[in-house]
């Protein structure tokens, strides 16, 4: 199934939504993705898509570990739903990356047959779930950045990425609301829930900085109009986080050391264990289908 070709001409029936008029991220109107899929730009493009996809795949895998274990049934369903959204988004992004890569690998091969150092997710998402506070504060910190990022990516000149981002943005709105709602409830709740929420925030904050880490890949994507530079979202993201943290009567942690390395394949000891569990079936039974 090809997800790649978004029509240039409107072909949707009367009564359907026409694509909204948006300002592209690049002034290079008419600039087609095909014309830049060579050399460094193509590598950066694939690399960028892997970063977006791997964050979602690994966080989705972590959230799915709560299935059957969440504090209440509604939360079990909520976390499983969010995991499903994230894994679905990663599947689409990996399919797009695989097509651009042109090496004949499928999205499943990218998800299940890459080793730890080939993953491009931030370390934040691979950390163990911890208690419910760690899980929910992480979801909040992550989603608070994704919402503005996805809004920008909807204007990407990469039409496939723009389409995936438009869909993911709607889903992210639910994820962010859910995460922030719980941060408010835990922080402004009992002494126990407040202490746990603060401990979770203190633990995660050094890792959260990596969400707005950028390098030459971001430079290339920004100059091509494929993506926005995630570093430019740092101030707005931080302001949003602080608003919720303060309303939750929690305290923003001081900035100290900052985790880096996930985007270039340097991970914590936790990712290997996660991958072992996630990948065991397709590696033990290559090509298995059902």
């Amino acid at each position: 199934m090809g997800y790649g070709s978004i029509p240039d001409e409107p072909e949707f029936g009367a009564g359907s939504d026409a694509p909204a008029q948006v300002t592209p991220l690049s002034d290079a109107r008419g600039h087609r993705v095909a014309s830049i899929t060579s050399g460094i730009a193509a590598n950066a493009h694939v690399e960028y898509l892997l970063r977006l996809a791997d964050d979602r795949l690994i966080l989705g895998q972590r959230l799915s570990e709560w299935c059957g274990h969440a504090p209440i049934l509604e939360e079990d369903i909520a976390l499983a739903n969010i995991a499903l959204d994230l894994i679905g988004e990663s599947s689409l992004l990996l399919e797009h990356a695989a097509a651009l890569e042109g090496a004949g690998r499928s999205n499943d091969a990218l998800a299940f047959l890459r080793d730890e150092t080939a993953f491009r997710n931030v370390q934040l998402v691979e950390l163990p779930n911890g208690d419910f506070a760690v899980t929910i504060v992480r979801l909040f910190l992550y989603s608070a950045l994704q919402l503005p990022l996805l809004e920008a990516l909807e204007r990407s000149i990469d039409a496939t990425l723009a389409g995936i981002a438009a869909k993911a943005r709607k889903e992210c709105t639910y994820h962010l609301r859910h995460g922030a709602d719980w941060v408010l409830k835990l922080g402004d709740g009992t002494a126990e829930s407040r202490a746990r929420a603060q401990a979770a925030l203190d633990y995660l904050w050094p890792y959260a900085h990596e969400l707005t880490w950028g390098d030459a890949v971001d430079d290339a994507m920004t100059s091509e109009g494929i993506a926005i530079d995630v570093r430019t979202l740092n101030a707005a993201w931080r302001a949003n986080v602080e608003r919720i943290v303060q309303a939750a009567t929690l305290t923003m942690p001081a900035d100290g050391w900052k985790a880096t390395g996930g985007r270039i394949g340097r991970h914590t000891e936790h990712l290997g264990h996660l991958l072992a569990e996630m990948q065991v079936l397709p590696r033990s039974h290559p090509g298995a289908t059902w």
């Binding site: 978004i6 689409l92 039409a159 438009a166």
Partner: peptide
Amino acid sequence: RIRTVFAPAWTSDW
């Protein structure tokens, strides 16, 4: 044959 298109994104208004 089936072609999957993501843009415009599905909406419950449809």
